[in-house]
């Protein structure tokens, strides 16, 4: 008989995580914008993502609140990318964000096929926008472009489906990371590799 722990691991290892939690994608991700014209032009007209909902809201509650317009672009699966435009708010941009942290913060949209990715590549170039990168990653191929709010937008297509091995490795990697962060030694990639090997050799992923 399979142990409860093993059953959980089997379920967690299921590609896509189907049926083990009730979340069904992103309802919406929201960002402030100081350039509604550029934002609507970029998402609706360049990328072709329909504007599906807007709200105009009178300020209420906290004293820092301002009147605003909240607008939502469809990004598939009934998920949305949303923006707030606050009337009277001075534009703000963090110019001191280190490049590494800037690149680490981005939105990745999913497309299914190479043709879809090529289509967005062409849309971006035809609009005269700068394609930041086109990269073959490990399991996705991606293009990158900056939106008018300086948000880094990635569009990615899968190169293969994720497997149970990917999910198991994710669990092992996460456990190894937590272990080395909780330990006395300096947390490094070398320490992570070593701890992962210990966990695998001890049968943790089995």
């Amino acid at each position: 008989m399979t142990s409860p722990t093993a059953q959980v691991r089997e379920q967690e290892a299921a590609p896509g995580g189907a049926a083990i939690h009730p979340v069904r994608g992103i309802n919406h991700m929201a960002f402030p914008t100081f350039d509604p014209a550029g934002t609507i032009g970029f998402y609706r007209d360049v990328l072709g993502l329909p504007l599906v909902q807007t709200m105009q809201v009178k300020a209420w509650g906290a004293e820092y609140q301002r009147d605003f317009v909240h607008f939502f672009f469809d990004i598939g699966n009934a998920d949305c990318l949303a923006f707030f435009y606050y009337f009277g708010q001075e534009p703000y941009r963090d110019k001191n964000l280190p490049p590494l942290l800037d690149l680490g913060k981005h939105v990745a949209l999913h497309v299914d096929t190479l043709e879809d990715l090529d289509g967005f590549h062409k849309r971006i170039e035809d609009a005269g926008l700068k394609l930041q990168m086109r990269v073959m990653h490990e399991t996705v191929e991606s293009i990158y472009v900056r939106d008018p709010n300086d948000i880094l937008i990635e569009i990615a297509r899968p190169l293969r489906e994720l497997t149970a091995a990917d999910a198991v490795d994710a669990m092992v990697t996460a456990q190894a990371l937590l272990d080395i962060l909780a330990g006395d030694g300096e947390p490094t990639l070398d320490a992570l590799w070593a701890r992962k090997a210990e966990l695998i050799a001890s049968g943790v992923p089995a």
Partner: peptide, 18 residues
Amino acid sequence: VRHSVWYSALAAVGHGRV
């Protein structure tokens, strides 16, 4: 292999130093 794959290929190291 391409660079992205090369630099993520090593999953773990037992009893060794990179």
